[in-house]
Design a protein around this nucleic acid. Structure first.
Length: 612
DNA sequence: CGCCTTTGACCTGCGC
DNA sequence: GCGCAGGTCAAAGGCG
């Protein structure tokens, strides 16, 4: 908005100057002319120049000789002056026309942008419809900061009205760079980093394909959709906050997709950074261990549930199943898991749609297009490989699965299976580094097939940078300690650190998309890479692009381009991140230490608490 | 006192 | 329609 004015103003000033000049010059000239016509022979054109601010009248053109000559000169000068005046009038008119044109263009641009946002919101953006004014204001605010934010992208993908408050704090949408720990002092006051994570609740899966997924997921019947909508507890809060039915209905898409994480953990639950409230427990058939049902309590209306159950085969293995996407800002420490699960769910849904083509049902299907999930590289020769511009690097994990054996397609991230080895692409992520401490068996993130092994799709998925201790704590290997020490890793939950790194990475990528990713922070970012690479999924990518577009006020920069360019670096990061390891905890904990995870305090936090 | 867990009852979907 | 299993509700009690 400022830009149109500035050139115009400059032009106007320039024009005014010229006009003043001309009038002044004219006045002087006339005076001199009168003088010349009079008695003063000293009235030379030199004096005309003096008052003319650059309007030369060729002082030495003619030596003061006869009056005839002087009249000739004056006549010539007047002609020139007239022509100059005409030019200036012309220029002024042109300037006015340009100003009008510019303002018209600006107006059109604004209206188009509004229209575009409106379309986005109506086309599947949850809750945004209720936040139209807010988001518009945000966008305007954002745009006002485009000079400093040209290269920044807001990733508040999981935001809702609550996240709208974010920009309120610092006057604009939180940007990736600001999401990094050090930039936002106000948010830093929040120990949990609540608002930091606002941008990374990637609930994209439901938005990317509102119709397609619906048709796909609802294959079991129409009423199911309604049921799922009603599934959410009729709690008071839910009833009061159900203003956006779109949100609920769209959440149901992801609701059906589940992400299951298997990890060795002695604590009752794994700490994923979120706050959970247990609302039920049931002994499931075939497993003597009861299954606990948790509901996210960060936001009263958050639809995310998780089920925690110990494996019947190995009691030390904790199976945590996530369902749904957070609709609120997440603690920094939770964004990783949230984005991972959401991204995985998104990918899962994509697979779901491809299952119609028979791809998902083929077991042990080789996969090739790298996507990264929390440092896990999904690979797929299925539709994921449509993203052919991605550098193709292949990783292989034998124990990975997407299960579609029930109404809830489930992707399982298995952290319990020791990494068979590492990958040539990760030369330094050697098993030796993992196993340097025999007490802490190395583990990679694998995708284990579910118990029944039905309809599983084998994925190549290295997450070899992630270890866990014998007690199930997530650890990263030694290398992340090496690099991460400079990053102060250890003062904050691992995932939080990773997300910060991710945000920094994204910021840098936006600034220098072509720059090599050898920034030390980037090397640590498996989480980021994970989520980022999930976007290799075309649907996820389109959703992300739409989300980004809706948040990038100035639209001059193609956000999708940024994403694609980021893709180019995904594997690079993965390569580096794969070898990163965190300082191993020196403590092993037992259940007696953590009797009950009232606040979701589980493995990870326990470890962190110990290590802090 | 508020929040949480526990736990039995209830609801719902699905297969037979 | 019935039974089973998964999932949820909500009252009761515990805990800080």
């Amino acid at each position: 908005m400022e830009m149109p004015k500035r050139p115009s103003k400059a032009l106007m000033e320039s024009d005014n100057t010229h006009e003043e000049t001309s009038s002044l010059g004219k006045t002087v000239l006339e005076d001199k002319t009168v003088k010349s016509d009079g008695d003063h022979e000293e009235g030379t054109p030199m004096e005309i120049t003096k008052g003319g601010h650059g309007w030369h009248v060729e002082p030495d053109l003619e030596p003061p000789s006869t009056g005839k000559n002087r009249a000739l000169v004056n006549h010539k000068q007047q002609d020139e002056l007239q022509s100059a005046k005409a030019e200036m009038v012309e220029a002024t008119e042109e300037n006015e026309r340009l100003k009008l044109l510019l303002s018209q263009i600006s107006k059109d641009y604004q209206s188009l942008r509004m229209h575009f946002h409106g379309l986005l919101q109506n086309g599947g953006e949850t809750k945004k419809c209720t936040d139209t004014s807010s988001s518009t204001a945000l966008d305007l605010t954002h745009e006002q900061n485009t000079e400093e934010a040209d290269d920044l992208v807001s990733l508040s993908l999981g935001r809702t009205s609550s996240s709208i408050d974010q920009p309120r704090k610092d006057g604009r949408i939180k940007k990736i760079s600001q999401l990094s720990s050090s930039t936002n002092g106000k948010d830093d006051d929040d120990d949990n980093g609540m608002l930091h994570g606002a941008g990374l609740a990637l609930e994209l899966g439901c938005r990317s394909e509102p119709a397609a997924d619906q048709s796909t997921d609802n294959s079991s019947g129409g009423p199911k959709e309604d049921d799922l909508t009603e599934i959410w507890p009729p709690s008071k809060t839910l009833k009061t906050t159900r203003s956006g039915e779109d949100e609920v209905s769209q959440q149901t898409h992801l609701k059906k997709a589940r992400v299951s994480v298997r990890a060795r953990c002695d604590a009752p639950t794994m700490n994923d950074g979120c706050q959970w409230r247990k609302y039920g427990q049931k002994t499931a058939k075939g497993n003597p261990c009861p299954r606990a049902y948790y509901r996210c309590t960060v936001s009263p209306s958050c639809p995310v549930r998780k089920q925690v159950q110990r494996s019947s085969e190995d009691m030390s293995i904790l199976i945590t199943t996530y369902e749904g996407s957070h609709n609120h800002p997440l603690p920094m420490s939770a964004t990783a898991m949230a984005s991972t699960t959401s991204a995985a769910a998104s990918m899962l849904q994509s697979h779901s749609s491809t299952s119609q083509q028979g791809l998902i049902n083929s077991t042990t299907a080789p996969i090739s297009a790298s996507t990264n999930l929390q440092g896990v590289n999904f690979s797929s020769t299925s539709t994921l490989s449509q993203n052919s511009r991605l550098p193709q690097k292949h990783f292989y994990f034998p124990n990975s699965s997407i299960s579609t054996n029930n109404s809830h397609p489930t992707i399982t991230l298995d952290l319990t299976v020791p990494s068979p080895s590492h990958f040539g692409i990760f030369p330094s992520a050697s098993g030796s580094s993992f196993s340097s401490n025999p007490r802490y068996p190395s583990t990679s993130l694998n995708f284990s097939s579910s118990s029944d092994h039905n309809n599983t799709l084998q994925l190549k998925s290295p997450w070899n940078n992630i270890n866990h201790t014998a007690s199930g704590y997530f650890n990263y290997g030694n290398r992340i300690n090496q690099v991460g020490s400079a990053l102060n890793i250890g003062k904050q939950p691992i995932f939080q650190e990773h997300n910060k790194v991710y945000q920094s990475y994204s910021y840098i990528q936006n600034q220098n998309p072509s720059s090599p990713l050898h920034h030390p922070q980037m090397l640590n970012d498996s989480t980021a890479t994970a989520t980022k690479a999930i976007t290799s999924n075309p649907k996820f990518q389109s959703a992300l692009a739409a989300a980004l577009t809706s948040f990038v006020g100035n639209g001059s920069t193609s956000s999708t381009t940024g994403i694609r360019e980021s893709h180019q670096s995904t594997v690079t990061i993965a390569e580096s991140a794969s070898g990163l390891k965190l300082k191993r905890g020196e403590s092993l904990t037992s259940n007696s230490i953590f009797p009950s995870s009232q606040n979701g305090i589980g493995c990870a936090s326990s470890y962190l608490n110990k290590s802090l």
